[in-house]
Computed example of a mutant assay.
Amino acid sequence: MAIAVISGCAPLIQLDSDAQPSTVNQVELGQGSGRMKNEQPLAHLYISDYDSAAVQNARMSGMKLPGYKPEPVVTVNHYVQSLMHDLAANLEILSTTFSVGVTSFVYLDGDYQQGDLLGNQLSEAFMHEATQFGMAVTDFKTTDYIRVTPTGDFTFSRDFLELTQQYPISVVLGGTLVRHQGGVIVNARMVNVMDKKVLASAQAFIPQNVVHALKGTHSAPLLQLKASQP
C-alpha cells in the first residue's frame, strides 16, 4: 500500500495495490493532521505527484484519480512574458516606429562575447514577445538568401560575413544573467543605440529546475550550481 500527496489543491489519495479503480478512497483535508474517512492515521510516506510511482501507474492503467489535475509546464518563456510586460510598462511611449534588435543575454561576471543556450533562448523568446506587443523587431541573423542542402533549407546564420552589414536598428533589447543559489537572475533592458539611454528595464528570477529543463544539442546540463564550501 502506498500513500501519496498530490501537490497543489488536489486531495490526498490512498492507492491499494490490490484494489480496483472503484475502491480508491479519498482522504479529507483539514487543519491539523489529515485523517482518512475510515479514521486510520496517515502513513509517514509523502511523495510528490512527479515522483509517485503509484500515481504514474494509476494514470497508465487508465485509473481516474479524484481531483487530480496535471500542473502546466512552466518554461523560460513564462518568465520572459512577465519581463516583457515590465519593460513595456516602463516605456514612456510604446512606439512602433523604432526598430528593435534583440541580442543574446550574457553572464554578468563572464565574457560579454560568449553566450549559452539560456541566453540565446531568452533572446528568441523576447523577439516573440516584443512582436506580440506590436514592436518592429529586426532579425539581423536573417540572410539575403535561402541555402538549400540535403539536410534542410536555411535562412539564418551566425556568420557575420553572410549577413547584411547595416540595419536601421534604433533600440536594442538584451541583458545580463547572474547565477544565484537555486536559479538565475535575469536583468533585461532596452537601450537607445544613439545616446545609450536606458529606455526600460526589468528583472526576474528563473528557478533552477526551469533552467535545467532546457536541453542542449548534446543533452549536457545547462547549469550546475555547486554548494558553497564551508
Rank of each mutant, 00 (worst) to 15 (best):
I13K: 01
Q14M: 05
S170Q: 10
S219R: 09
V191T: 12
A220H: 08
E129W: 07
Y167K: 06
H212N: 15
S17G: 10
Y46Q: 12
L12W: 06
Q166F: 06
G174Q: 04
L42D: 03
A53G: 08
S123R: 00
G34T: 09
M36H: 10
V178G: 12
D109H: 08
L177S: 05
T96I: 11
S52Q: 12
E28H: 03
S95A: 09
Y68L: 06
F156C: 12
G182N: 08
V178W: 09
M190A: 05
V76E: 03
Q166P: 05
R35V: 12
Q203P: 07
P11I: 04
N90V: 04
V184P: 01
I185Q: 08
L83T: 02
Q31M: 13
V24T: 02
D153C: 11
D139N: 08
D159Q: 15
A125V: 05
T217H: 14
V148E: 14
G152V: 05
I206F: 03
V172K: 02
Q165G: 11
K64N: 10
T217P: 10
H44C: 12
V55C: 00
K196Q: 14
T103S: 13
A19T: 01
Y107N: 09
H44R: 14
S17A: 10
G115A: 15
T75W: 01
M63E: 11
R147P: 11
P168E: 15
A10C: 14
Q31P: 07
A54P: 03
T142S: 10
T97N: 15
F160C: 02
E28L: 04
S170Y: 06
Q114A: 13
C9K: 11
T143L: 10
L117A: 15
D144K: 12
E92N: 12
S61R: 07
N120R: 14
F133N: 09
M194R: 14
P11M: 01
F105V: 06
Q26E: 10
T97W: 07
V172N: 06
A88Q: 10
D195N: 07
N192E: 05
Q229L: 12
L87H: 08
G30P: 10
E39Q: 13
H218M: 10
G182H: 10
L12C: 14
L94W: 06
Q208R: 01
S228W: 11
T164K: 14
M127H: 00
